[in-house]
Design a protein around this nucleic acid. Structure first.
Length: 299
DNA sequence: CCGGACTCCTGGTTGC
DNA sequence: TGCAACCAGGAGTCCG
């Protein structure tokens, strides 16, 4: 599932292609991908056609491209918001390249510095979406704008303005399990099931350890491991990235060959050799080492 | 505030 | 071989 590293790879790859480009045509093949757009498909097409695109931005798993609509000034700031959901991909293609069967939305873009390109939004399961949204003040950093539908999403741990101390304080006040907290995008964003399991394994913390009983040093270790695992994935996603084609979902985008816990049930724990277990938790799988990762009770 | 259930959805895999 | 059931889960909403 696309998590922070995969979305960041898309953002970075998209940037040189779309920043400064103009949308010359929009095709909506499946309106269900506009579920989060406030208006019909025609409205989306009308407002995107002719729009000038700025450099894409990201918070957590949300991606957006600020747009300058053809109308010009007087209009409030807007952005094309992209969420990849479970299976979304953004592909940059030559204008005449064949389309993926599961392409839901497609844009033709013209750029003053390079040839016309096509941007395809491919999404098998349609949990992802595109929408036009207005930009609002993020609230903590003046002048920092985010789409209104992203305003409740916390900053992600790779964000310079992420406040470690505030995160630890909120964590301590929560009355819940640590994995639930890691997956709560309003507390810390960008982490999904894969990297949650990986970071918890690295920090030797059980997924259901109550947040209130997690000592400050262990919480610090966990946040450091979160950043480490996201950073590694980012580096690997970056190396396999081909400037011509952005591929989000493919196995290549994930550093599946370096997973220690996720999907490793039945395999020996790389640290202690005991078998990794998979348990059902929060309607999904939780993978962990039952020896390295035990719930610690406060004494 | 918290957690569980439910919704969106389809391709690939499993099981009979 | 054929087909149906099952599984994957990000995020929002609703309810107890």
């Amino acid at each position: 599932m696309p998590e922070l590293p995969e979305v960041e790879v898309v953002r970075a790859g998209l940037e040189p292609a779309v920043a400064g480009a103009t949308v010359t045509a929009v095709n909506v093949f499946d309106g269900r991908s506009l579920r989060r757009h406030d208006g019909p498909s025609e409205d989306f097409v009308d407002r995107m056609t002719g729009a000038r695109l700025a450099a894409p931005r990201r918070r957590g798993k949300f991606l957006w491209v600020p747009i300058d609509p053809p109308g010009g000034s007087g209009h409030e700031a807007e952005a094309l918001v992209v969420h990849l959901g479970m299976s979304g991909q953004v592909l940059l293609r030559e204008p005449d390249a064949p389309r993926d069967r599961l392409t839901r939305i497609s844009f033709d873009i013209a750029h003053p510095l390079h040839p016309v390109l096509r941007v395809d939004f491919v999404d098998q399961r349609i949990f992802g979406s595109m929408s036009i949204d207005r930009l609002v003040e993020s609230g903590d950093v003046p002048g920092d704008l985010v789409p209104s539908q992203v305003s409740h999403i916390a900053r992600d741990p790779m964000d310079r303005a992420f406040d470690d101390a505030a995160f630890f304080a909120k964590l301590a006040k929560r009355n819940t399990g640590i994995k639930r907290a890691l997956l709560d995008q309003t507390l810390i964003s960008g982490i999904g099931n894969i990297y949650a399991d990986e970071a918890l394994w690295a920090a030797r913390i059980h997924y259901d350890q109550p947040t209130a009983t997690l000592s400050r040093p262990r919480a610090k270790t966990l946040l450091a491991e979160v950043r480490l695992v996201l950073g590694k994935a980012l580096a690997e996603g970056g190396t396999s990235f081909d400037a011509q084609y952005l591929n989000v979902n493919g196995e290549s985008g994930y550093f599946s060959h370096s997973l220690n816990a996720y999907g490793q049930q039945g395999e020996p724990c790389p640290r202690c050799g005991r078998l990794i277990v998979r348990e059902q938790f929060m309607n999904r799988g939780s993978h962990f080492c039952p020896f390295c990762q035990r719930i610690r009770t406060a004494r």
